[in-house]
Simulated assay, not measured.
Amino acid sequence: MDVTTARERLEEMLADLDRSIGVLRGEPVGVRDRSAADAGSDLTDADRAQAMLTVANSQRQAIVEAIRRIDEGAYGRCVDCAKPVPEGRLEARPEAARCVPCQGKRERRR
């Protein structure tokens, strides 16, 4: 994928994530009567929203780092071994920072 297309896709992904993060951080709409069941449901919803916010922020960081790599001329190279990241991987995940073998090693270490 050429860097112009990659940048466009990454910036679009970033804008979408920023909107989603804004919604996740937003206040509940409307006022309703509170019961014990509502409080338990709200806690579960808050936990779910917090988990989604954590994932969204992590994804946002990966996109920002990919844009930085474009600016530095390092986009498309693995950050661990400096080998090219396969074109198909960049098509599927334009924010990918690692080649498949290095990403596999990273995931096994977790």
Rank of each mutant, 00 (worst) to 15 (best):
A97P: 05
Q61G: 02
T5R: 14
I63L: 00
E65P: 01
G104Q: 09
D38V: 15
D47G: 12
V100W: 00
R69Y: 01
I21F: 01
V100S: 09
M52F: 11
C78H: 02
E87G: 04
E11R: 11
L90H: 06
V23Y: 00
D42Q: 07
G22E: 12
L17T: 02
R110N: 12
Y75L: 09
A74E: 14
R110C: 02
G26D: 15
L17P: 08
T44V: 15
A97G: 15
R77Y: 11
G30A: 13
R106I: 07
I70P: 03
E65Q: 13
N57V: 10
A92N: 09
C102L: 04
E11Y: 05
G40C: 02
T44H: 13
A39P: 01
R93E: 08
A82G: 07
R19G: 10
R32A: 14
G76T: 03
A6F: 05
E87T: 11
R69P: 00
A36F: 04
A92C: 12
A56Q: 14
A46H: 08
V31A: 12
M13L: 15
C99L: 04
G88R: 04
Q61A: 14
C99Q: 05
L17F: 08
V85E: 04
K105D: 11
I67G: 01
D71P: 03
A51E: 09
L14W: 05
E65F: 06
S41V: 04
C78L: 08
A49H: 12
R89F: 10
D18M: 06
L24K: 08
D16W: 05
Q61M: 11
I21K: 03
S20I: 09
V64G: 00
G26H: 12
P86G: 05
C99H: 02
G30L: 00
